[in-house]
């Protein structure tokens, strides 16, 4: 399969960010921060009225898009920036573009957008094609 700079990558869509997944990730991350688990804590801190997705889940969404777009590749490098929170129940869409191709290495720009609020995470990544 060949890739070219400027090529758009197929999006990865999360129809509804799951509060139940946040409970699982509190265990995976060994981090029981209540802003991910208890909406009353989120309200009390003035951070909104829905539980807040753990940042690494948002990175995982972006990785999912890259892994689907490059089934014969692996993520070699990734730099992610956290621009805003993602809330339980929101629809989120990962999109991406090939920015450069150098032999078996593909550079990409990736972003995670939520309905009505724009980009909440952005990233650059290098994929190494393995076949």
């Amino acid at each position: 399969m060949s890739y070219a700079a400027g090529e758009a990558l197929p999006p990865f869509v999360i129809e509804s960010v799951s509060p139940d997944a946040m409970k699982q990730w509190a265990v995976f991350l060994a981090d029981p921060n209540p802003i991910h688990l208890n909406v009353e804590v989120v309200k009390a801190k003035g951070l909104g009225d829905r539980v807040i997705n753990q940042g690494p889940i948002n990175v995982a969404y972006m990785m999912n898009m890259l892994m689907a777009a490059f089934p014969d590749g692996r993520i070699e490098r990734m730099e992610s920036r956290f621009l805003d929170n993602v809330y339980g129940g929101e629809k989120a869409v990962v999109s991406g573009t090939v920015t450069a191709v150098d032999g078996d290495r593909i550079d990409c720009a990736v972003q995670l957008d939520v309905d009505g609020r724009g980009t909440v995470n952005s990233a650059t990544a290098t994929i190494e094609l393995t076949r």
């Binding site: 940042g55 690494p56 990175v59 692996r74 993520i75 070699e76 490098r77 990734m78 730099e79 992610s80 920036r81 956290f82």
Partner: peptide, 9 residues
């Protein structure tokens, strides 16, 4: 708050 995270595999 998380600002950024980078990884090199």
């Amino acid at each position: 708050m998380m600002g950024s995270s980078g990884v090199r595999f």
